[in-house]
C-alpha cells in the first residue's frame, strides 16, 4: 500500500507559481471545507466561549453573567471536582497501564511468532468495539450483581460479592478495565515502530557485549520514544473524552454516588438535560484548556526524553 512509496519521491522543490486562475480553483476545491470550518468548527468554538460567560437555556435569550459560571464551577460545585477526579483517575490509571501492556506485547510479538497475524487481530479487535454501546451493555451485565464475573468468582469460592457496577468503590474500575481491554490500538502502532529499528543496531550492540536487557534499554527504548510519545498523546486525548461506556454502565446518571461521573458526562447532563448551556460551554472550555495543558506539557518534556534520530 501507500507505505511502498519512498520518502524521496514525496517532495518536489519546484512549485508552480501562483496564478489567479489556479488560486480561484483552489478556493473552489476548498469551499466545503471553508464553510465547514466557519459554520461547524470555528463559529461554534467562538460562540462557546461567548456562551460560557452567559446564562443560557435555549428558550430565553442569553444573559451576560461575566465570569460567574467559572466562579461557581471552582468555588461552589463539588460535582465539578468530582467529575475531574473521576476522569483524572480514569486517564492516569488506564493510559499508562494500557501503554505498558501494549509495548510489552508488541515486543513479545515482534520477535517473530508463527501465526502473528491471527494474534495481532485477536488483540486488536477489542479496540474497535470497546467504545460501542453493545460492549458497554455487556460490561453492565457481566459486572452486575448476578453477572458472569461474580458467577466466576463464586465458582472459585469467593463469597459476599459486591455488585461491581452499583458499588461506588468499584464501578469506575470496571471502566478502567474496559479501557485497558482496548490496548490493541497502541500495540499496533508500537509494532510498526519496532519494525523500523534497524537490525544493525542490535547486531552492533551484541558485538559490544550488550545482553538482552541492555539492548532493550539502550536500543529499543530510545529509538521507540517518538512512538511512545505519540501513543501517549493520542491515548490521553481519547481518554479525557471518554463518554459512552460511562453513560451506558451508569444508565446516563454517572452513579452510583457520582462514581462514574466522567467530565464529559457531567458536561452532557448540564448542557443537554438541565439545559444550563452557558455552564456546559464553560466546562467545555475548561476541558479544552486541560487537554491543551497536558498536550503542551508533553511536548515540553518530550525534549528531555524523546529521541529523534534525525
Amino acid at each position: 500500500m501507500a507505505t511502498g512509496i519512498s520518502p524521496s519521491q514525496t517532495r518536489t522543490p519546484r512549485r508552480p507559481k501562483v496564478r489567479g486562475k489556479s488560486q480561484r480553483s483552489a478556493y473552489v476545491f476548498l469551499l466545503p471545507w471553508i464553510i465547514g470550518s466557519v459554520v461547524i468548527t470555528a463559529g461554534p468554538l467562538v460562540a462557546s466561549l461567548f456562551l460560557s460567560f452567559t446564562d443560557y437555556n435555549l428558550l430565553e435569550p442569553a444573559t451576560w453573567v461575566g465570569g460567574e459560571n467559572y466562579v461557581t464551577m471552582f468555588t461552589a460545585d463539588p460535582r465539578f471536582y468530582k467529575s475531574l477526579a473521576v476522569t483524572g483517575t480514569y486517564v492516569f490509571v488506564s493510559v499508562p497501564l494500557q501503554l505498558i501492556g501494549a509495548l510489552a506485547l508488541a515486543i513479545f510479538l515482534d520477535k517473530g511468532v508463527r501465526g502473528i497475524d491471527a494474534y495481532r487481530s485477536a488483540y486488536y479487535l477489542p479496540s474497535l468495539l470497546g467504545g460501542s454501546v453493545a460492549i458497554g451493555l455487556l460490561w453492565y451485565i457481566v459486572f452486575g450483581y448476578k453477572g458472569g464475573f461474580n458467577t466466576l468468582l463464586s465458582g472459585l469460592g469467593f463469597e459476599n460479592l459486591p455488585n461491581w457496577i452499583n458499588n461506588p468503590d468499584t464501578s469506575l474500575w470496571t471502566l478502567v478495565v474496559l479501557n485497558l481491554w482496548t490496548f490493541g490500538a497502541p500495540m499496533i502502532i508500537f509494532m510498526a515502530g519496532l519494525r523500523q529499528i534497524p537490525a544493525e543496531l542490535y547486531e552492533q550492540a551484541q558485538l559490544d557485549g550488550a545482553g538482552r536487557w541492555r539492548q532493550f534499554t539502550n536500543v529499543t527504548v530510545p529509538l521507540l520514544t517518538p512512538i511512545i510519545f505519540f501513543n501517549l498523546i493520542l491515548q490521553l486525548i481519547a481518554a479525557f473524552q471518554a463518554f459512552t461506556p460511562a453513560f451506558v454502565v451508569s444508565r446516563g446518571t454517572g452513579g452510583p454516588v457520582d462514581s462514574t461521573m466522567f467530565y464529559t458526562l457531567y458536561l452532557y447532563l448540564e448542557g443537554f438535560t438541565e439545559f444550563n448551556m452557558g455552564y456546559a460551554s464553560a466546562m467545555g472550555w475548561i476541558l479544552l484548556v486541560i487537554i491543551g495543558i497536558f498536550t503542551g506539557l508533553n511536548f515540553l518534556f518530550s525534549k528531555h526524553w524523546v529521541f529523534y534520530n534525525d
Partner: peptide
C-alpha cells in the same frame, strides 16, 4: 474535543 463545540 467535540464537547467544546457541542453546545453552540
Amino acid at each position: 474535543p467535540y464537547h467544546v463545540i457541542a453546545v453552540p
